[in-house]
Nucleic acid binder design. Structure first.
Lengths: 277, 277
DNA sequence: CGGATAGTTGAGTTATCTCAAATGCAGTGG
DNA sequence: CCACTGCATTTGAGATAACTCAACTATCCG
């Protein structure tokens, strides 16, 4: 399997991350020692330009690497690549690996036998399925690549061990965990009590917010690879109804989605529609 | 504040828990040493008869007590009592305490300014708000007592410390955490994709299941203190629609709810309606 | 007795769904 | 280059699940 350099796909973000504009010499020096199942060393170097380095747990791991200086023994990992629309984990799978998204968008969903399905979250760079799956393997969820996706997989047992040995990592885990919990509470409120308009507006605002945190928003037009059916799956609505809501918003001049890009025209009004605090 | 003996309220469950039918002599002996803010010693002894002792994390703590033999220094706690319909935590509160339900039913909810509200879970004996709140204080959620409720509160910092020192407790945390996550996924599916009939049926079956695990179900008629508005809050429906669904089920001979008791007539059919595996 | 809370029922409304058909676009193979 | 297939989007018409409003009853409690 060939793993081309990730540099090009990350170059656009380098300017956003203050202290990591250049690949760390430590990372570069040690890369060749890494036990990563035969992948070339740039699969580690790639992290230094990752837009989510500061947010995500795997960013924390990376810092840990740099501090400790010996990546190889700490956390072997390998980068996988999945083409858009293919599935990363099937819902029957009980994997001993924990995946972290490096680039691209993915969706986690649960489904019913009769075809009804609900997506639980969209995964952006730095995200993992759920903090809960650091500790216990979980099945029942399908993870699908929306765009082409690169992700690293860590062995759960090793990840767990390292977490307990480094309290500051556990702090990060509990923080992200808590965020995740809040997200879910809001999602329950959305699905249970909010109107279609609110749900769609909130989905958009929420995603824009998360992208901004990762430095993946510059200006008012943003990469936005979701199809209307993804939005429908996530909001508990029907694709055709999502279409009607989106058209309404676009006619109202809030934003425009076309060519897999989102352009925001009236952010204030959009936030009002989303009841964003 | 007076704290009457809890023995009477737990006596009914003693028969259900094999190895704990009698109060542990160790627990009884050490009770008087407990630093529990002036509450009488029976607030510890009460745990030995708790129906959720084996399931819950606080049960795990209790076992820890017994092993270590010194409750007082390990985890001071105090029992609180809240009358039905009163609120245990307000949604603006950021408490340094973690509550565990000892007896009674409670509900956690999130709400909107305009009055719409969604309850996230019903808390039964042994439950806490969420595993996530062991590590980070969480606000935004209201916890309300449905029946009269007794709960213990632990100081988060102390609880956390004890957790890290005892790996088998962490195992229990991660297990419960994982369950919680699964519950939540199912809830998203319920709210987003299931019909009102399915939601109501699932709520009932799910609760009966959880009660059974705690030894709180004997036979086909069960304590069931939920009002129709609680069911409505939890299922994302309207009280009047819940009423119609319930009446339909009762007319169909599935079960009967009256006088705060649930009597199941046709469990098989009920499970089918709930698509219970 | 009066006042609060729960449950019940009916009539009419509405948000969202279902079904169906038309369009456009992008990739594929000949 | 074209025809063809699959996917996404758009639009309209009609159906329906769930909601709103309102009135009525029952029960409990002071």
């Amino acid at each position: 399997m060939e793993i081309p350099s990730l540099e090009s796909s990350h170059k656009q973000f380098l300017a956003e991350i203050p202290n990591l504009s250049q690949p760390s010499p430590i990372g570069a020096a040690n890369a060749s020692h890494v036990n990563n199942e035969g992948n070339p060393p740039d699969c580690i170097a790639a992290c230094t330009g990752c837009p989510a380095c500061q947010l995500s747990l795997c960013g924390g791991i990376e810092q840990q690497f740099v501090q400790v200086g010996s990546l190889a023994r700490m956390l072997p990992s390998s980068i996988q690549r999945i083409p858009e629309r293919h599935t990363i984990f099937h819902h029957k799978e009980w994997s001993e690996f924990v995946p972290f998204i490096c680039s691209g968008w993915a969706a986690t969903s649960v489904g019913l036998a009769d075809g009804r399905r609900q997506t639980l979250s969209f995964l952006l760079p730095g995200d993992t399925l759920s903090m809960a799956c650091l500790f216990e393997p979980m099945s029942g969820r399908t993870v699908e690549a929306i765009t082409d996706v690169e992700y690293r997989k860590f062995k759960r047992s090793e990840l767990k061990a390292i977490l307990f040995r480094h309290p500051h990592l556990m702090d990060k885990v509990s923080k992200i965990w808590s965020d995740e919990r809040n997200q879910f509470d809001q999602m329950a409120l959305d699905l249970g009590r909010r109107t279609a308009d609110e749900r769609v507006a909130r989905l958009v605002v929420n995603l824009v917010d998360r992208l901004a945190k990762r430095g993946m928003r510059n200006g008012d037009t943003i990469e936005f690879p979701l199809r209307q059916r993804h939005i429908a799956d996530a909001t508990g609505l029907t694709p055709v109804h999502v279409n009607k809501v989106l058209c309404k918003f676009q006619r109202a001049g809030l934003f425009d989605i076309s060519d897999r890009r989102l352009t925001i025209f009236d952010e204030a009004e959009l936030c009002r529609a989303a009841e964003w605090h």
